[in-house]
Amino acid sequence: MEYVIEVENLSKSFGSKEVLQGISMKIGRGESYVVIGGSGSGKSVLVKCILGLIEPTSGVIKINGQDVAKLSQKELFKTRLKCGVLYQGGALFDSLNVIENVSFGLIYGLQVPQKEAYKIALEKLEAVDLDETVAKLYPSELSGGMSKRVALARAIATDPDIIFFDEPTTGLDPITSGIINDLIVRCTKEMGISAVSITHDINSLKHISDRVGLLFKGKIIWEGTNKELLATDNPYVVQFINGNAEGPFTTQG
Protein backbone atom coordinates (compact mmCIF):
# COMPACT_ATOMS: atom_id res chain seq x y z
CA MET A 1 0.00 0.00 0.00
CA GLU A 2 1.18 3.50 -0.80
CA TYR A 3 1.39 5.71 2.27
CA VAL A 4 0.79 9.47 2.21
CA ILE A 5 1.83 9.96 5.82
CA GLU A 6 4.40 7.93 7.74
CA VAL A 7 5.20 8.85 11.33
CA GLU A 8 8.03 7.01 13.07
CA ASN A 9 8.79 7.25 16.77
CA LEU A 10 7.52 10.81 17.07
CA SER A 11 8.05 12.51 20.44
CA LYS A 12 7.32 16.04 21.57
CA SER A 13 8.01 17.62 24.94
CA PHE A 14 7.11 21.06 26.24
CA GLY A 15 9.67 21.70 28.97
CA SER A 16 9.60 18.61 31.19
CA LYS A 17 6.13 17.57 29.98
CA GLU A 18 6.20 14.78 27.40
CA VAL A 19 3.08 15.27 25.29
CA LEU A 20 3.87 12.68 22.60
CA GLN A 21 5.91 9.59 23.43
CA GLY A 22 7.22 7.65 20.46
CA ILE A 23 4.20 7.62 18.16
CA SER A 24 4.33 5.58 14.94
CA MET A 25 1.52 5.49 12.40
CA LYS A 26 0.97 5.10 8.67
CA ILE A 27 -1.88 6.46 6.60
CA GLY A 28 -2.56 5.03 3.17
CA ARG A 29 -3.69 6.90 0.05
CA GLY A 30 -7.43 7.51 0.13
CA GLU A 31 -7.70 6.25 3.68
CA SER A 32 -9.58 8.06 6.44
CA TYR A 33 -7.73 7.78 9.73
CA VAL A 34 -9.31 9.12 12.89
CA VAL A 35 -7.39 9.93 16.05
CA ILE A 36 -9.50 9.77 19.19
CA GLY A 37 -8.57 10.42 22.80
CA GLY A 38 -9.47 12.49 25.82
CA SER A 39 -8.71 16.20 26.20
CA GLY A 40 -4.99 16.81 26.66
CA SER A 41 -4.01 13.41 25.22
CA GLY A 42 -1.86 15.08 22.55
CA LYS A 43 -4.14 14.78 19.48
CA SER A 44 -3.79 18.40 18.36
CA VAL A 45 -0.04 18.39 19.01
CA LEU A 46 0.29 15.25 16.86
CA VAL A 47 -1.51 16.90 13.94
CA LYS A 48 0.39 20.19 14.37
CA CYS A 49 3.69 18.23 14.31
CA ILE A 50 2.68 16.49 11.07
CA LEU A 51 1.75 19.86 9.55
CA GLY A 52 5.07 21.37 10.62
CA LEU A 53 3.40 23.98 12.83
CA ILE A 54 5.26 22.56 15.84
CA GLU A 55 8.77 21.14 15.66
CA PRO A 56 8.95 17.63 17.14
CA THR A 57 11.58 16.78 19.76
CA SER A 58 12.49 13.58 17.91
CA GLY A 59 11.15 11.20 15.29
CA VAL A 60 10.57 11.17 11.54
CA ILE A 61 7.55 12.49 9.63
CA LYS A 62 7.20 11.68 5.95
CA ILE A 63 4.56 13.21 3.69
CA ASN A 64 4.27 11.57 0.27
CA GLY A 65 7.53 9.75 1.08
CA GLN A 66 9.50 12.95 1.81
CA ASP A 67 11.05 13.52 5.23
CA VAL A 68 9.67 16.97 6.11
CA ALA A 69 12.61 17.79 8.41
CA LYS A 70 14.97 17.57 5.43
CA LEU A 71 12.92 19.84 3.16
CA SER A 72 13.94 23.41 2.37
CA GLN A 73 11.50 26.20 3.22
CA LYS A 74 10.37 26.33 -0.43
CA GLU A 75 9.82 22.57 -0.65
CA LEU A 76 7.99 22.63 2.68
CA PHE A 77 5.61 25.29 1.33
CA LYS A 78 4.98 23.10 -1.74
CA THR A 79 4.33 20.05 0.45
CA ARG A 80 1.95 22.05 2.63
CA LEU A 81 -0.11 22.93 -0.44
CA LYS A 82 -0.75 19.20 -0.76
CA CYS A 83 -2.27 19.28 2.75
CA GLY A 84 -5.61 20.95 3.43
CA VAL A 85 -6.70 21.72 6.97
CA LEU A 86 -10.18 22.22 8.38
CA TYR A 87 -9.63 23.98 11.69
CA GLN A 88 -11.93 23.52 14.65
CA GLY A 89 -13.30 27.07 14.55
CA GLY A 90 -12.99 27.28 10.75
CA ALA A 91 -10.13 29.82 11.04
CA LEU A 92 -11.57 31.78 8.12
CA PHE A 93 -9.84 35.13 7.63
CA ASP A 94 -12.19 37.72 9.17
CA SER A 95 -11.08 40.54 6.91
CA LEU A 96 -11.77 38.62 3.70
CA ASN A 97 -15.09 37.55 2.21
CA VAL A 98 -16.01 33.95 1.37
CA ILE A 99 -14.66 33.89 -2.19
CA GLU A 100 -11.40 35.58 -1.10
CA ASN A 101 -11.04 33.04 1.71
CA VAL A 102 -11.62 30.04 -0.56
CA SER A 103 -9.30 31.32 -3.28
CA PHE A 104 -6.59 32.41 -0.81
CA GLY A 105 -4.31 29.35 -1.14
CA LEU A 106 -4.67 29.44 -4.93
CA ILE A 107 -3.74 33.13 -5.25
CA TYR A 108 -1.05 33.45 -2.58
CA GLY A 109 0.24 29.86 -2.43
CA LEU A 110 -0.02 28.65 -6.04
CA GLN A 111 0.12 32.14 -7.66
CA VAL A 112 -3.01 31.42 -9.75
CA PRO A 113 -4.41 34.61 -11.40
CA GLN A 114 -7.34 36.04 -9.44
CA LYS A 115 -10.01 35.48 -12.12
CA GLU A 116 -9.13 31.82 -12.53
CA ALA A 117 -8.79 31.36 -8.75
CA TYR A 118 -12.30 32.76 -8.21
CA LYS A 119 -13.65 30.35 -10.84
CA ILE A 120 -12.06 27.39 -9.06
CA ALA A 121 -13.27 28.72 -5.68
CA LEU A 122 -16.87 28.81 -6.95
CA GLU A 123 -16.55 25.19 -8.10
CA LYS A 124 -15.25 24.22 -4.65
CA LEU A 125 -18.12 26.08 -2.98
CA GLU A 126 -20.51 24.08 -5.15
CA ALA A 127 -18.72 20.89 -4.09
CA VAL A 128 -19.69 21.67 -0.48
CA ASP A 129 -23.28 22.51 -1.52
CA LEU A 130 -22.93 26.31 -1.38
CA ASP A 131 -23.53 28.68 -4.27
CA GLU A 132 -22.32 32.08 -5.37
CA THR A 133 -24.88 33.91 -3.20
CA VAL A 134 -22.53 33.42 -0.22
CA ALA A 135 -19.43 34.50 -2.15
CA LYS A 136 -19.53 38.13 -1.01
CA LEU A 137 -20.48 37.41 2.61
CA TYR A 138 -17.94 37.86 5.41
CA PRO A 139 -17.22 35.10 7.97
CA SER A 140 -19.09 37.03 10.70
CA GLU A 141 -22.27 36.77 8.58
CA LEU A 142 -22.14 32.96 8.28
CA SER A 143 -23.74 30.34 10.54
CA GLY A 144 -21.56 27.68 12.23
CA GLY A 145 -22.39 25.05 9.61
CA MET A 146 -21.81 27.42 6.71
CA SER A 147 -18.45 28.51 8.16
CA LYS A 148 -17.38 24.87 8.33
CA ARG A 149 -18.42 24.31 4.71
CA VAL A 150 -16.57 27.41 3.52
CA ALA A 151 -13.52 26.29 5.51
CA LEU A 152 -13.82 22.86 3.88
CA ALA A 153 -14.06 24.49 0.44
CA ARG A 154 -10.88 26.44 1.27
CA ALA A 155 -9.18 23.24 2.43
CA ILE A 156 -9.95 21.42 -0.85
CA ALA A 157 -9.32 24.44 -3.11
CA THR A 158 -5.69 23.57 -3.82
CA ASP A 159 -6.60 19.93 -4.65
CA PRO A 160 -4.72 18.46 -1.68
CA ASP A 161 -3.70 14.81 -1.27
CA ILE A 162 -4.44 14.90 2.46
CA ILE A 163 -6.94 16.82 4.55
CA PHE A 164 -6.69 17.27 8.31
CA PHE A 165 -9.98 17.69 10.15
CA ASP A 166 -9.69 19.14 13.65
CA GLU A 167 -12.92 18.26 15.47
CA PRO A 168 -15.03 18.93 12.37
CA THR A 169 -18.43 18.56 14.06
CA THR A 170 -17.76 20.20 17.44
CA GLY A 171 -20.37 22.84 18.27
CA LEU A 172 -22.74 21.87 15.43
CA ASP A 173 -26.28 20.51 15.75
CA PRO A 174 -26.75 16.77 14.88
CA ILE A 175 -28.18 17.44 11.43
CA THR A 176 -25.44 19.88 10.41
CA SER A 177 -22.91 17.42 11.88
CA GLY A 178 -24.40 14.72 9.64
CA ILE A 179 -24.05 17.00 6.59
CA ILE A 180 -20.39 17.76 7.43
CA ASN A 181 -19.73 14.02 7.97
CA ASP A 182 -21.20 13.28 4.53
CA LEU A 183 -18.99 15.95 2.98
CA ILE A 184 -15.90 14.43 4.64
CA VAL A 185 -16.84 10.98 3.31
CA ARG A 186 -17.41 12.54 -0.13
CA CYS A 187 -13.92 14.08 0.00
CA THR A 188 -12.24 10.80 0.82
CA LYS A 189 -14.30 8.41 -1.28
CA GLU A 190 -15.17 10.47 -4.35
CA MET A 191 -12.13 12.75 -4.54
CA GLY A 192 -9.68 10.09 -3.29
CA ILE A 193 -8.24 12.43 -0.67
CA SER A 194 -6.67 10.89 2.44
CA ALA A 195 -8.01 12.24 5.70
CA VAL A 196 -6.64 12.55 9.21
CA SER A 197 -9.30 13.59 11.68
CA ILE A 198 -9.41 14.38 15.35
CA THR A 199 -12.79 13.95 16.94
CA HIS A 200 -14.67 13.40 20.18
CA ASP A 201 -17.91 12.78 18.34
CA ILE A 202 -18.61 9.04 18.30
CA ASN A 203 -21.30 9.33 15.61
CA SER A 204 -18.90 11.20 13.38
CA LEU A 205 -16.21 8.63 14.14
CA LYS A 206 -18.42 5.72 13.05
CA HIS A 207 -19.41 7.59 9.91
CA ILE A 208 -16.10 8.90 8.60
CA SER A 209 -13.36 6.48 9.73
CA ASP A 210 -11.65 3.65 7.88
CA ARG A 211 -9.13 3.18 10.67
CA VAL A 212 -8.95 4.55 14.20
CA GLY A 213 -6.11 5.19 16.67
CA LEU A 214 -6.78 5.81 20.36
CA LEU A 215 -4.33 8.22 21.95
CA PHE A 216 -3.76 8.17 25.70
CA LYS A 217 -1.01 10.01 27.55
CA GLY A 218 0.94 10.64 24.35
CA LYS A 219 0.87 7.05 23.07
CA ILE A 220 -1.35 5.20 20.61
CA ILE A 221 -2.69 2.47 22.87
CA TRP A 222 -5.10 0.92 20.38
CA GLU A 223 -5.38 0.94 16.61
CA GLY A 224 -7.85 -0.85 14.39
CA THR A 225 -10.46 -0.59 11.66
CA ASN A 226 -13.88 0.95 12.05
CA LYS A 227 -15.44 -2.52 12.46
CA GLU A 228 -12.81 -3.67 14.96
CA LEU A 229 -13.49 -0.54 17.01
CA LEU A 230 -17.08 -1.55 17.61
CA ALA A 231 -16.22 -5.21 18.27
CA THR A 232 -13.18 -4.83 20.53
CA ASP A 233 -13.31 -5.49 24.28
CA ASN A 234 -10.26 -3.25 24.91
CA PRO A 235 -11.28 -1.50 28.17
CA TYR A 236 -9.95 1.89 27.00
CA VAL A 237 -11.90 1.78 23.74
CA VAL A 238 -15.04 0.49 25.47
CA GLN A 239 -14.94 3.30 28.03
CA PHE A 240 -14.32 5.95 25.36
CA ILE A 241 -17.01 4.73 22.97
CA ASN A 242 -19.64 4.30 25.68
CA GLY A 243 -18.65 7.46 27.55
CA ASN A 244 -18.46 5.62 30.88
CA ALA A 245 -17.39 7.61 33.92
CA GLU A 246 -15.66 4.52 35.35
CA GLY A 247 -12.79 2.77 33.55
CA PRO A 248 -9.05 2.82 32.85
CA PHE A 249 -9.10 6.43 31.54
CA THR A 250 -10.36 7.69 34.89
CA THR A 251 -8.29 5.39 37.11
CA GLN A 252 -5.03 6.05 35.23
CA GLY A 253 -5.71 9.59 34.02
Binding site: K48, G52, C83, G84, V85, Y87, A91, L92, D94, G109
Partner: peptide, 20 residues
Protein backbone atom coordinates in the same frame (compact mmCIF):
# COMPACT_ATOMS: atom_id res chain seq x y z
CA UNK B 1 -6.05 42.04 15.01
CA UNK B 2 -2.96 39.83 14.85
CA UNK B 3 -3.62 38.51 18.38
CA UNK B 4 -7.16 37.49 17.45
CA UNK B 5 -5.83 35.83 14.30
CA UNK B 6 -3.35 33.96 16.46
CA UNK B 7 -5.85 32.63 19.01
CA UNK B 8 -8.42 31.69 16.36
CA UNK B 9 -5.77 29.69 14.40
CA UNK B 10 -5.89 32.09 11.42
CA UNK B 11 -2.09 32.44 11.53
CA UNK B 12 -1.78 28.63 11.47
CA UNK B 13 -4.19 28.67 8.53
CA UNK B 14 -1.93 31.14 6.70
CA UNK B 15 1.04 28.81 7.23
CA UNK B 16 -0.82 25.71 6.08
CA UNK B 17 -1.98 27.62 2.99
CA UNK B 18 1.74 28.13 2.27
CA UNK B 19 1.77 31.83 3.03
CA UNK B 20 4.55 33.23 5.18
Amino acid sequence: EIGTMKVTEQIDALTTLSVN
